[in-house]
């Protein structure tokens, strides 16, 4: 009897395993995605708790300790041309770079989702106007445009860079969501909902968007890495976030002058950018496999 009971319980519990448990199990099976998640967690935590990890102030200038190589005088990753501790700068820069990455992604995904949902749901003239705008913005040469806009509105302010990156970053999501909504809105359950007199916002927010969740979340995780690289590129060229606020890209801005004598200054910031971006791509890949392997993103 005991054995039979156990079997029944197991069977029941298997049946009751929620969709999210399945997704989580699938995700954890993807080794690279788990690796990515661990790396990102470490980066985020070390950025938040930076003062507990390193005793150094990232802006404190010590001319006597210029360009120390890694592992000297208590500076694990060395110092820069002004004697500032590299590790401290990397961790505090991580705060800005990760904050920009997450904020831009959340905002541009939100805008893209709203535009895509409205465009796909209403169709007609609204759709063609919105999609013409999207088409046009997608043809713009991204980096030159971002550069000129940052140069015009300059100042190197964090929020300004965020706004610029969002304004030129929402189009991909809107196309994606529009496609999802177009195919979903013809399905029976939406028609049933409409027949029962559901309001348009209810249909969009309760049915269409939750059902488009999988591709949106995959696109979002792939986008974070791209945003961080773009911000780094802008700051590297001197059109991004201005000193003294350090970001990973900006730390690479003037390294070429003494790269021969202090190559670590060029290595570490870029390595952090690369690892972050790689990890988010792995996570996105894992999420796609876990949520819906047929997705083409």
């Amino acid at each position: 009897m005991a054995v039979a009971e156990l079997d029944a319980e197991q069977l029941l519990s298997l049946e009751e395993e929620s969709q999210w448990r399945v997704v989580l199990r699938q995700f954890l099976r993807h080794r690279l995605a788990v690796f990515g998640l661990i790396v990102i967690t470490i980066f985020v935590l070390s950025a938040i708790f930076a003062p507990l990890i390193t005793p150094y102030d990232p802006t404190r200038i010590e001319m006597a300790k210029r360009n120390l190589p890694p592992l000297t005088e208590g500076h694990w990753l060395g110092t820069d041309e002004l004697g500032r501790d590299m590790l401290a700068r990397l961790l505090y820069a991580g705060r800005i770079s990760l904050f920009v990455g997450f904020t831009v992604t959340i905002l541009s995904i939100t805008i893209g989702t709203i535009v895509g949902a409205v465009s796909g749901y209403y169709g007609g003239i609204v759709d063609s106007i919105l999609m013409r705008i999207v088409d046009f913005m997608l043809t713009l040469p991204t980096l030159p445009i971002l550069l000129v806009v940052s140069a015009i509105f300059g100042g190197g302010n964090v929020w300004l860079i965020i706004v610029v990156l969002v304004v030129f970053g929402w189009m991909g999501t809107s196309r994606l969501v529009r496609g999802m909504v177009l195919s979903l809105k013809e399905q029976e359950f939406i028609e049933a909902e409409r027949a029962m007199g559901a309001s348009t916002p209810r249909i969009i927010f309760m049915h269409l968007l939750p059902n488009s969740f999988a591709p949106i979340i995959v696109a979002a995780s792939l986008e974070v890495g791209g945003v961080i690289i773009t911000e780094a590129a802008l700051s590297f060229l001197g059109f991004g976030i201005a000193p003294p606020t350090p970001t990973w890209g900006q730390m690479l801005q003037n390294v070429q002058a003494d790269m021969w004598t202090a190559p670590w200054k060029a290595f570490f910031p870029g390595f952090f950018i690369f690892m972050t971006s790689l990890s988010f791509n792995f996570i996105g890949d894992g999420l796609r496999d876990a949520l819906d392997p047929r997705l083409k993103i």
Partner: peptide, 9 residues
């Protein structure tokens, strides 16, 4: 994932 400019450096 590679930032081009860093790869160049």
């Amino acid at each position: 994932a590679m930032p081009v400019f860093w790869f160049g450096l």
